[in-house]
Design a protein around this nucleic acid. Structure first.
Length: 418
RNA sequence: GUGAGCGUAGCUCAGUUGGUUAGAGCACCAGGUUGUGGCCCUGGGGGUCGUGGGUUCAAAUCCCAUCGCUCACCCCA
């Protein structure tokens, strides 16, 4: 038997209702905040991600689905959406048409990792990007958007974490400071952290190894060495979040594994998904547009994992979405009326009444069981003595009440069945 | 890439120290005096016990290999 690829999942009809519910909620929320949807191809030139995300990141280093097409171009299935959105923004000069561009997306992403709870190789993210303003109000807006959506889904076990990485300049001077501090302790660090010492020193804060943590505990904190602008912006975000009633904590270790972040970074964690707690992450990336060859523009954004969110909803039992059912099921009381039933069904459908009937020549009892199983509101009996007298019988499935309808008054059904 | 656990019916699982035609519940199908559902009752279909090899008179059960799934590490959504 051919099975789906490791780390990929079918979304079956039984589960589709909550996906559609979530997608509707997203479109409505983004409309309220005036974000326009963008859709980009699933694959891009590999160079886009290497330059955008950063060569030293785990994503680029070991997680990308990269392959060559027949013309030997190296392509990569998108592992995240910010780089493609920025590529599109630059390619189509979206910034020339308006000074601020607010975009959202819902799209599959691909990363070749070992699957576990809340982690797949093909997974879906939604997210937003606002390009063209350095206002910290937009950073706050990202958190409000994401947090609001999660709360709307009934999620409770949430933690909002924020941090500021400062401007590139302050980050560079801080890195020197940190390097000085760690220089003589370097030999005490773990192998990973020693490697990071040279490649991406900030990530040492991410280390979960205890000995690393004790060393890093007393290191100078980036947040205490911010430039004035970053400091002020961070204050604005904190104030706005408080005013919006969004609880948050400052996490100075929140560095994030993508190179493009500057100033504010944030993450929303859930305690309801297993070891992979991050439902959502984002932050400001004031350098990326220029890095990818566009005219320098400040920007901020976030991405959220749909499977993780739905998993959290599942575990918190926060969503209660009824299955879709049809308005009416047509029941063939005696054989020979198949064509007539099909005709009735098409008439009802043109009237926007959803209906179905039995195609398997089953007994009336079996048809009734079927109707009951699909939780239909009404059944319409076609056949028997009534039909000979040009009458139909309509039954309300929840009350069990039946009524007779004259064939000549078939159109009175339309209002009744809706 | 590393580690641990698990693969028996569509699903959730039983299966005793290896021993007859491998079971249950749910789901599915058909009936319960031929025109109606939910509850209940009766019956039925469905399994090369993940796959391949080995040990044995005999393997779902023991051994080896292999594939897959799950969870965790790493990192991230």
């Amino acid at each position: 038997m051919i099975k789906s690829i490791t780390g990929t999942k079918d979304i079956l009809p039984a589960d589709i209702a909550k996906w559609q519910y979530l997608e509707e909620l997203l479109r409505e929320t983004f409309r309220l905040f005036n974000y326009k949807e963008i859709r980009t191809p699933v694959f891009e030139e590999t160079a886009l991600f290497i330059r955008g995300i950063g060569e030293e990141t785990d994503i680029v280093g070991k997680e990308m689905y990269t392959f060559k097409d027949r013309s030997e171009t190296s392509l990569t299935l998108k592992p995240e959406m910010t780089a493609p959105v920025v590529r599109s923004y630059i390619e189509h000069s979206l910034g020339a048409q308006q000074p601020l561009t607010k975009l959202f997306y819902i799209s599959p992403m691909f990363r070749q990792e070992r699957p576990q709870a809340g982690r797949l190789r093909q997974f879906n993210q939604f997210g937003a990007e606002a390009i063209g303003s350095r206002s910290p109000l937009l950073d706050t807006e990202m958190i409000q958007l994401a947090y609001g959506i999660l709360k709307s889904l009934g999620l409770n076990n949430l933690t909002v974490k924020i941090n500021s990485l400062g401007t590139p300049e302050t980050r560079e001077t801080y890195k020197k400071l940190l390097k000085n501090y760690l220089e003589d302790k370097k030999s005490l660090l773990s192998e990973d952290s020693r490697r990071r010492f040279d490649t991406n020193i900030l990530r040492i804060f991410d280390s979960k190894i205890e000995s690393d943590q004790t060393i890093i505990k007393d290191a100078p904190k980036l947040i205490e060495h911010l430039d004035d602008e970053s400091k002020q912006d961070f204050e604005v975000v904190k104030n706005q979040l408080s005013k919006a009633g969004i609880p948050f904590q400052i996490d100075t270790a929140l560095v994030r594994g993508l190179d493009y972040y500057t100033k504010l970074t944030f993450e929303i964690d859930s305690g309801s998904v297993g070891a992979q707690t991050a439902l959502c992450g984002g932050g400001r990336y004031d350098l990326l547009i220029e890095t990818l060859g566009g005219k320098a523009a400040p920007a901020t954004g976030f991405a959220a994992g749909i499977e993780r969110i739905l998993l959290a909803c599942e575990n918190e039992k926060s969503l209660n979405i009824p299955d879709q059912s049809i308005d009416v099921y047509l029941i063939r009381v005696d054989s020979g009326l198949e064509d007539k039933i099909a005709e009735f069904a098409s008439v009802l459908r043109t009237q926007n009444i959803s209906c179905d009937y039995d195609y398997l020549n089953r007994s009336v009892k079996a048809q009734m069981r079927e109707a009951n199983k699909m939780n239909t509101k009404y059944v319409l009996f076609v056949g028997g003595d009534e039909y000979k007298k040009e009458l139909l019988k309509l039954k309300d499935m929840s009350s069990g009440v039946e009524e007779i309808i004259a064939l000549s008054e078939f159109n009175t059904l339309y209002a009744k069945l809706k």
